[in-house]
Amino acid sequence: MLETLKKDVCVIAKRAQHDGLCKHKSGNFSARDPETGLIAVTPTGLDRDEMSPRDIVVMDLDANVLENESGLRPTSEVLMHIALYTSRPEIRAIAHTHSPYATAFAVLNKPIPAIVYEVANLGLTKARVPVAPYARPGTPGLAVSVSQAAAEADCILLEKHGAVAVDSRDIYEAFLKAAYIEELAELYHHSLTANAGAEPDSFPQEELQRWAYPAEIKFPNR
């Protein structure tokens, strides 16, 4: 069931670990099939170096496990994934990471401002990566907190916890957003350090919304 989706989720979960976005058994990933509405989600308590597509769990949005070939349970934070898919039906994939710089700002409960223009592609509406207020991992409270923050942005910090990125295309794009969160957080940290703690300049949302592919580039037969 959902074999291609399970393979994609497994590949990205492994890549996220190898790229340092999450270590050991932390973080979780999922993707939603647009035809059935079912989701493929990483299991709990399994080192990703040992993970295979058959370990990915298939569920519905009522939290029913429909397939777990290897007998593993889905991530304990699956309620957060379900809440995001339910509150924003266009979402196709979710990446939840514990990358160090992003998590440091999550610990500080400090949103990350749009200090570089590349954040124009991160689905922000207030020129920042917001922080979802703390709730215990795995609880309905966390699911509510994160889904409310996702009404503002595709990229979110979870207070005292980590980061989440969502995307309406696929798991690879959600992973890229999670990677950009960490890169932005590292740049912000270095900027604050170099500037003796003073806030660096950042872009207003109006400027971010002005970006467009250059009309001056010409293609044949068009």
Score class of each variant (00 low, 15 high):
200 P>T: 00
156 I>F: 07
128 R>N: 13
1 M>F: 06
159 E>R: 08
171 I>D: 08
38 L>R: 15
43 P>N: 06
215 A>V: 12
208 L>A: 04
83 A>D: 04
139 T>W: 01
167 D>N: 09
135 A>N: 14
19 D>W: 01
117 Y>E: 01
162 G>Y: 01
198 A>G: 04
184 L>I: 10
29 F>C: 10
177 K>Y: 10
15 R>W: 05
28 N>D: 10
153 A>F: 01
124 L>I: 07
208 L>V: 07
67 E>P: 01
119 V>I: 12
164 V>C: 05
178 A>Q: 00
14 K>W: 03
109 N>P: 00
9 V>D: 08
198 A>V: 07
66 L>K: 15
130 P>I: 02
35 E>L: 14
157 L>P: 11
125 T>I: 10
199 E>P: 02
147 S>D: 01
185 A>Q: 07
137 P>Q: 08
147 S>H: 04
59 M>N: 08
167 D>W: 05
24 H>S: 14
177 K>N: 11
215 A>Q: 15
186 E>Y: 12
220 P>N: 10
110 K>S: 06
100 P>D: 01
213 Y>H: 14
208 L>D: 07
177 K>A: 11
103 T>I: 11
202 S>N: 13
130 P>T: 03
102 A>R: 04
125 T>R: 09
29 F>G: 09
45 G>Y: 03
115 I>W: 03
71 G>Y: 00
153 A>P: 00
174 A>S: 09
173 E>K: 02
101 Y>Q: 04
96 H>F: 03
34 P>W: 06
18 H>Y: 12
88 R>L: 06
149 A>M: 05
147 S>K: 09
10 C>N: 05
165 A>L: 03
55 D>L: 01
7 K>Q: 14
133 P>A: 03
47 D>I: 06
1 M>A: 13
84 L>V: 09
42 T>H: 01
50 E>V: 06
174 A>I: 03
187 L>A: 12
205 Q>P: 00
